[in-house]
Every structure is written in C-alpha cells, then in structure tokens.
Design a protein around this nucleic acid. Sequence first.
DNA 1: TTTTAACCGAGACGGTACGTCACGTCTTGTG
DNA 2: CACAAGACGTGACGTACCGTCTCGGTTAAAA
Lengths: 206, 206, 206, 206
Amino acid sequence: MNIPCGAGRGRPRDDAREQAILDAALQLLVEVGYERMSMVAVANLARASKATIYRRWSSKDEMVIEALRRRAPVDNIPADTGSLRDDLVAQVRLMIEAASGPEGALLVGVLRAASESPQLAEVIQTNMRQHKAEMCCCLLERAVKRGDLPESADPGPLVEVIVSMIFMRLLVTGEALDDAFVHHLVDELALPLLAGRAGIPAEPAS
Amino acid sequence: MNIPCGAGRGRPRDDAREQAILDAALQLLVEVGYERMSMVAVANLARASKATIYRRWSSKDEMVIEALRRRAPVDNIPADTGSLRDDLVAQVRLMIEAASGPEGALLVGVLRAASESPQLAEVIQTNMRQHKAEMCCCLLERAVKRGDLPESADPGPLVEVIVSMIFMRLLVTGEALDDAFVHHLVDELALPLLAGRAGIPAEPAS
Amino acid sequence: MNIPCGAGRGRPRDDAREQAILDAALQLLVEVGYERMSMVAVANLARASKATIYRRWSSKDEMVIEALRRRAPVDNIPADTGSLRDDLVAQVRLMIEAASGPEGALLVGVLRAASESPQLAEVIQTNMRQHKAEMCCCLLERAVKRGDLPESADPGPLVEVIVSMIFMRLLVTGEALDDAFVHHLVDELALPLLAGRAGIPAEPAS
Amino acid sequence: MNIPCGAGRGRPRDDAREQAILDAALQLLVEVGYERMSMVAVANLARASKATIYRRWSSKDEMVIEALRRRAPVDNIPADTGSLRDDLVAQVRLMIEAASGPEGALLVGVLRAASESPQLAEVIQTNMRQHKAEMCCCLLERAVKRGDLPESADPGPLVEVIVSMIFMRLLVTGEALDDAFVHHLVDELALPLLAGRAGIPAEPAS
DNA sequence: TTTTAACCGAGACGGTACGTCACGTCTTGTG
DNA sequence: CACAAGACGTGACGTACCGTCTCGGTTAAAA
C-alpha cells in the first residue's frame, strides 16, 4: 500500500510517476498475466526505476492491488427493453462484457495476489455494490412499476448469484461466457430466484 | 501431464515413485502453498530426484494439477434430517467443510496454475458432478417423497449456485464461511430457487 | 579398466560390442571433445547400452583411456633425404601430422582425463618410445654412417625435446604447427642440441 | 570475459566483489580442482551470489581464465652462484617450485578450460616472457661477462625448451619433477643446446 | 536337454552442477 | 530528498550428465 512520507522536506514525490507505473502495470497485467509480469518490465514500460516503485509499494502484490483499485469503474448503462427478462439479459451481457475484456484477463492473472490480502476482495465488493445499485434502481424498479414484481423485490441475492456464476466460469472452470450461458443464468436461475423469493411462479421465456 | 512411454522396453516407471511424489506435493501444497513449494522440497520429501519428477511432468504446474486430480474424492455422507431445509443445511456444511480443510488451502494456493490449462477446471467439474449426484439421489428425492417438491425438481442449478457461492467467498472475497452464510445460502437462495423453479412459493425457515 | 569376469559360466561377453563402443567413443571424442561427449551418446552411436559400457569400464575416464590405448599406432615412414636436417624436418612433419589430425583433437579434448590417472601418460610414453626407436634406427644411424654425427649420438633427448615442444603448442599455447615452427624446431633446437651433445658446432640451414 | 558496462549510469560494479570471487575461485581451484569446484561453492566462499558471478563472466570457464590471469606473477629471484650451470639449476628449481605449488595443481585442473579459448595460452606466454627476461638479464648475461658464452647467446630457445619439458611432465606424463629431472634438463639439454648454438662444445658437470 | 548365470538394449532412478530469471534491497550520480 | 540505472544476495526453475539399478529377453556353457 501507499507509504506516504511524513514531512514535506526534500523533493516531493511526482504523482505522474505513480500513475505511469500503475498504467504500465495494468497494461502488462492484461498482456502477459500476473506471473509473467516482472517488476523490471513495469519499470521499463513506465520509464521508471524499481526503486521508485518500491518506494511506494512494498511488494509486487501491493502494487497490483493498487493498480486494480485505481482503474476507472465501468459505466454500465442498462437499457429499458420493456420486459424484466430482457432487461436482465442485457444487464448480464454488460457484466460479462466488462469481465471478459482486459478486466477479465487481469483478474484471472491477478487473483493469486488476492488470496493473501483482503484488498482485492474489497475491489470486487465495491464492484458488486455498484451492480447491486444498478439492479435495484433500474431493472427491478421498472419491473415493480410494471407490476411484474412485488415491491419487496431485493436485488442483493440476485447480484450475488449472477456475479458468483460469472466468476466461477471465468476463474475456475473456464467455460465459455456465451449466449447459452446468459439465458441459462437468467431463465433458470435469476427469474426462478426472483419468483421464488416473491412467492409467485416464474415465467420462463417462451 | 503424464507422458506414458510407448513401448514396454527399458526399466518401467515405478508407480510408487509417482505416488510418493504426488503425496509429497500435496502435503507441501497444503503446508506452505503453491508459491512457496519448491520442486527440490517435493523431491526431497518424496526421497526422489528432480529428474524423476520432470520425467513425468513437464513443469511444476502440470505436477500440481495431477496431484489435485489424483486426490481421493471426499465421502460426503448426507444425513436424512426429515426436512429439506435441514438436509440442505447439512449438505452445504459438508461441502464447506471439505473446501475449508487442506482442500481449500490447496485450491486457493493452486488456482493460479489452472488459469492456463483446462485441467483444474475438469477437477472442479468432476467434483460438482459428484455433489449433483448426491443432491439428486438423496436430498431432493427425499423431498419429493415427502411431497415437498414436485417430481421435476432438478439438482443441477442448485449445485451450480451453491458451489459458485462457496468458491466466490473462498477464492475472491475471502468472507467467512460461517453459519450465517450457510443460512443465507439455503434460505435466501437455495429454497427460493427451488420454489421458483417448482412454481410454488418458498417456505422460509421459521 | 577392463573387468574380466571370473568363471566361464553364462553368456560370454561379446568382443564386437567392446570394439563398437570404443570406436564410437573415439569418433565422438574427435568430433565434440571430451566434455561434450556423453555416455548416452556413445551408447547410442554404438547401438549399445550404458550398462554394457559400465560392465566393462568403471567410468567415462577409464573408457576413454582404453579407447586411446587401442587406437592403431600410426605408421611413421621416415624417408632418406640424404641430409640429417631434411630427415629431421620430414620426421617432425610426420609427427605433427599425426598429432594434428583426429589424434590431436582427441588429445586436447581428453587430456583432462589423464591428470588423475597415470594411464594416459603410459600411452604417450609408448608413443614416445616408438618415435625414439625411429629416430635411433633410421635418422641418426644414417647421419652416423654419413659421418655427420659421432657414434655416441643419442636420440633420447632429441625426441624428448621435439615431443615436448609439439605438445606445448598443441595443448597449452595453441600456436600453429606450421613450417615456420618445424624449421625453428629443427634448426634452432634439434640440430644445435645434437651438435652441442656431440661436442661439435652445429650447421644451421643455409 | 569481463563485460564492462558502457555508460557510468546506475550503481557501479563493486571491484571488491570481483576480487573476492576470483580469490574464492582460485582457492577452490587449488583445493579441489576444476571439475569439483562448483559455482555455488565459489559464490558462497566469496559471500556473493551466482547472479553476481554470471553478470561478469558468461560461464565457469571464463571466470576461471580470468582468475588465472589476475593472479600475481611470481617473483623469481635468480641468485648468482658463480657458474652458469648452477645458475641454471637454481632457475629451473624456481620454475618447478612455482609450477608445483598451488599454481601447478591449478594448471593441471584448469587446462581443459583453455583448450577452447586462446586466453589461457596468453597467460602462459606472458609467464614465459617473464622467464625469458630473467634468463636474458641475469643468467646468460652473467655467463657472457664471465666469458662462458659468446655475446650472441639467446635465452629464447632455452626458455622454450625448459618450459615445454616442465609442462610435459606436469600435464602429460606426470613424471616427478625431482633433482634427477633438473640435472637431466640442465646438463643434457640446456647446456648442450647453448653450446651447440654457440658453436662450442658443452662442458657437462663433473 | 534342461538349467543357469551372465549377457544385452532400453531406460528409470538419485544425485549434483549448470546457467537463467525474478524479487526486493542497496548504491551510485543527477536534479 | 526524489529519481533512473542497475548491481547485489537469495533462491527457484528447468536441463543435462553421471553412474547405478531394474526390466524383459537372449545366449552359450554346465549339468
């Protein structure tokens, strides 16, 4: 983690270096993965030196975590399709898209770094909170307005399940995140779950 | 991966060495984790030599994968508690227990090795199939007999969700796998899912 | 060294294997040098197996020594040129030729093996004795007959010096064994030496 | 061979490390010989690391060559005994002594490393030049002053022969470098050679 | 003829050294 | 002080070789 120096004596740290380093780290992380990314490579790409890196973060893992945390949150723009199911499909596709680009390659490569520090977890959970908010504010709200769901509908468990399923495939089994998966997820898990929680039968897609 | 020699000429490979090596690997994997486990350490513990290891597997990763695959499947003995919910709670606890012991430490430590080969995925999926079978043959069947579920009940999505949620916490967020989680999983996800899929309202725990 | 089996029971050793192995060893010795010649390579080239080699010689060094010893002695056919100096030049050229072909490459490559066992020394000395005999029986004898040398002329020191000088260049300094060297050797060392030992002035080449 | 970095940027190489490594190498070379000296052993003895060694020399051989070249030249202090023969005996004894101590063990052990690079040759020749100078400036000069030799006396061939004979025994035949050898060398080779080259009869020791 | 012991090719095995590479620290010179 | 450059100690990796051993199969002398 960032180690701020106490007094303002001497030459101040150059924030531009910091950003250049994290950018380089992120780029290499995506390109070659966590293991094959070396600190020297990061330093060279950032036109920095290892000392400048280790002055800020105490290890490769810390730096990677920070790089992940800094990355700009993806704008998920859910569209109103008129039906809850299609809204869900669209949303799940957005999430998969976000996770399949550099983001995913990155996570797959870096996950190891998280197993020993709770900080990557925090990053993921922040992300989940964002999705939860989107589900809540948009999709479910619309469905409630349409009368498809009772007012008690809770996006929490839904997001949990969707995110977990995506991570499962992405990180562990490596199965494809294709349309079949999206429909499976929405029709056989998400909608039944909402239905079961609402106390009403689900209406699978025709 | 194991490279079986074609002809039977020459001194045959000693299966005992193979097993000793994999045992040693598994033990060290659990004790110190993937990163800190060195090939020399494995060789010494197995009273073997590096050459003997590399004759069988072309890299540390390959060996670890094989070690995981060989590990005896855990006997999950689900008990009949008389109620579907309690059966599920018991089953989830068993799965968590299995994943939290050496098994979990091991998976967390080794997951990195899987990100590039589909072989760990296979291991996980085999495990999932086993749980699916248990769910099918025992828990859901009993519930059907009791009349709590229609005959169409499918354990597939249920297992998927449960396993995904456990892996999510274990590998990504690192959250505790405690009783609260078990109840959350069963009451807010598993039962509603079953209910929704069955077309009947769920019965939350009293 | 060769380890003969005691009793005559059982299948007797195949001498052809022995020869094939030594031939292969010699060939590889010349081609790639002592260090880069591996026992497996020798075995493969001889269509033999390592066991068959180690049944006969206890180490790589022993085998190499034997290979050197077995090699057919080179036929040095000194010609009568009518003058002692030209006879010497011819003889030195023959010796250099013998030492510069495979023979030399071989010695350079294998010399290390000799530093720990006195057996290569023996090989070399046998060779020296042969040259000494040639010098004695032919060159010097002719010179004595012509009256160029007194009867007391002794080929011993002469051969010693010539061989030492050749080895020096071959093994240590690596300098070229060209005509300049031959003339230097004969005119500035061999003839003066003979002259000094005979108590008469040398006659350098015109 | 040493690879000097171009610019003066970055932390400069520590010459002390270089010296410590070469010292360690030399010590082990003498103690256990070339083959049994491992790079890790050198590194440990020098309290250095393999990386530090390989940053300077690209292989074990290169390092050994450099170690030999750096070794301080032995001070050969020839004494004036009043007679050319005794001066020669003393000088030859000094050379043998120098070659029989650590120096010799070292050369025997390392000669292999030289067979492929001309650098050890250079070391040897430098040494020979030194001996030549000593012979010239001291021994022969004294003899000329005494009138034992004509002014034309040339130490070149003399040194060549003496050094070659010593190397021959040391490296190839392994024969003892004892007094008998010294007298043989001086009385039967060196003095006759000088006599023959001077055009006067030699005076063997009484 | 049958036994029997040594032979033979192939190649697995334990050991050990090699040369490479990455990490995280330390040491220069320059702003 | 920060910074770029890069040397340094540590320690793992994967490769290669040596000399031993263990297979199945063959071969000739002994019983």
